[in-house]
Design a binder for these strands. Sequence first.
DNA 1: CTCGGGACGTA
DNA 2: CGTACGTCCCGAGA
Length: 879
Amino acid sequence: MTDSSKPTLLVVDGHSLAYRAFFALPVDNFTTKDGQHTNGIYGFLSMFVNLIKAEKPTHLAVAFDTSRQSFRTREYSEYKANRSESPAEFKGQIPLLQECLAAMNVTVLTKEDVEADDILATLATQGAADGFDVLVCSGDRDTIQLVTDDVTLLYPSVQGVSQLKRYTPDAVVEKYGLPPENYPDIAALVGETSDNLPGVPKVGEKTAVKWLTQWGTLDALLENADKIGGVVGGNLRDHLDDVRRNRTLNRLLRDVELPVAPADLAVGPIDAEAVRDIFARLEFRTLLPRVFEAAGADPAMAVETAAPAVPAPTAGEPDAAGLAEWATAQTGEVGVSVIVAGGFPQRIGLASADAAVESTWDDDVAAALRDWLESDAPKVLNDAKQQVKALRRAGIRLGGLVFDPLLAGWLLRPSFPDKSLADLVHRYLDEKLPESDPAQLVPETEGATPGQLSWFVLRVADALRGELPASVARVLTEIELPTLGTLADMELAGVSVSHEKLSTFSAELGARSDDIAQRAFATIDREVNLGSPKQLQEVLFEQLQLPKTRKTKTGYSTDAAVLADLQESNPHPFLELLLQHREATKLRQIIESLDTAIAADDRIHTTYVQTGSQTGRLSSTDPNLQNIPIRNEESRRIRAAFEVGEGFETLLTADYSQIEMRIMAHLSEDPGLIEAFVSGEDLHRFVGARVFGVDPEEVTPAMRTKVKAMSYGLVYGLSAFGLSKQLRIEQSEAKQLMLEYFARFGSVRDYLRSSVEQARIDGFTETIFGRRRPFPDLASPNRVLRENAERAALNAPIQGSAADIMKIALVNIHEEFRAQGLRSRVLLQIHDELVVEVSTGEWDAAERIVRDRMGDAADLTVPLEVQIGRGGDWDVAGH
DNA sequence: CTCGGGACGTA
DNA sequence: CGTACGTCCCGAGA
């Protein structure tokens, strides 16, 4: 037991423990979707938090080796020379582990020319002298020499890093028969295979201990080596130098110069935001609460963030007139927070830099504030869309929205969208937003009031503005904020969907999938759950003995591509039926989820997540209307259920043709590609003619398919391997195709190469309009990670520019419809397509506006071509 | 009950 | 060994 009155210093050898974890944990279970291996990090941290929870250290440090070179390798070049190079998969984890520790506010120590254990020895020695109870945690047996009454060693057992054995002086004596300070003598005699330090042949621990007990010290033993008989005595005499060398090398340095003393290592509060970020990157989920728990278990490690330096102003509660008076008197920006309940405003709070007011929302407040809310007076709202929607339901169209911290935060860091004001307050103000605990009936802490929220919103906005590069600030002001208002209207409008059409189709599919299932069961003489990949694997690979397919984390793949391959090589009726069953049930699921999403107004109101992608695209949820099937004839019946609403004349669909290839032509300035688009010829026919050296009319469908796949693949960073797989052609042919392609469109290759190179230099990519996306992994030593980043970086400016263009077009169309007093409205955006509900008599005007505003949304070196369709439902309109 | 994985729909 | 998303179901673990 440690003396509870003394502070406890815990020092850990990060390298050796992470290395053990690396081999103990299966890498398959610890790889991020990007391919970063995390088993060493996970295993170390898991052990580490358990250790903190159990030992509750007051002071803490983790030491790492800097390299394999140290003073020991200089003294004895063979030192550790038998160790194979540690795998690259492990090395790449060390910087990330150090990042985790930094986020947890744990001091990380390294020093050139010494090993981690020397740092531990130094800290342990100083700590004991300074009155600490010291815990040393290392996987290197040499640290046994550090054990004293004040220093306890925690050593991982053979079971792995989760079990730690405690070495006190008594425990050392019990295990080795000698006190800790003699352990290096034993080790010097026996040798240490893992350090490539050979000892005396045939001498093990037993003999070493016997000798040392007999002679008292190693020196005495070595001096009297000639008195020892037998073969082992001879061996000892032959290896005296080895033993002396071993003893020199296994003595840990206790006087390494360090930038810190034990007292400087006091455990501090963890940086909750940073921990969340790095853990999210590493895809650690279960570990996150454990870290917080371990941190919370000790007040010294508690997650705490400073209270605001200046407390939030107490919000006044004037009456409706007073509220309006306060608002109109403001000359600067005003923070606004509308508390929404059931889709309508419930409370509203306003704040300036030093004052706040708030009120419950009622008709009087709405009437009093309407003019100001609708005016251009500058306002800042966080996550404004839902508040804008609530106000519109209450008959007020918010004006003067100049900033939204949530959007700004996403533009700065699209890979970690901060989800709430609290996240933003923490990250950008380093303060804690007062929040009441919803789990408590009577909350201990008061949450911020609407007026105070608004005050925080304003301050976060200021902090964010300071970080936004000018080009990104323009994207916010000119693209994102106007888009926000447009999306609010689109969501409120919703799209009319026929319950009848859906339910008829669903019933058909239900009957069909049951029938298919029965027939499938008949072919294998038993019933299984066709929706269970696990049960399917049993059927396919055990019962039917089909050849094993692509490996997955949990076994072998049974996806559609794999099943199609199997059907070709090993035909079996079950395979075809399974595919049909998948198709029918998938469609049915989509239909059912759409059906349940139809609201009381017979329309579906999706939610567009403006911060939902890393490239600048929107995403759509509850339900997702951006993935409604279209690829086969039957699935289009789903689109047919999306109808023009009552009181409107028709649906209009408008989509950009080949917008990404056009952006590629613009960015690469490739003369051939530009000519293709300017000529107005079918793109793939034109490209095919160039690549295959024939006239455009001689391009066969097969040739067209190939160049089409090639062109689209370019935008994604497709390899020859991928191209060959997709086209089911030889890799050599795919390679040849790429060579021919680039021979004719060389600037495309130049552009793609240089854009990734520029991103490597800048650390980010940029769209035509200045939207940025950071790519830290372009510099990663991990090849998988780096190459993934390269493909994403290749794609980001193209996909992102397309997203920018569509947003600009969408906003312009929406605003022109309103400016011209049309009832027609945009309902849906599906990345490069818009669905518009056209009011009676407005077709010509609407069609012209859509075509023009999509066509002139960006000024590229190639024209933006738009295809328009018309019909009473989405299926017809989309043709 | 939550969570990860597999599968699959779209651009 | 092709970018960007969201949703469903299953099965494992709490």
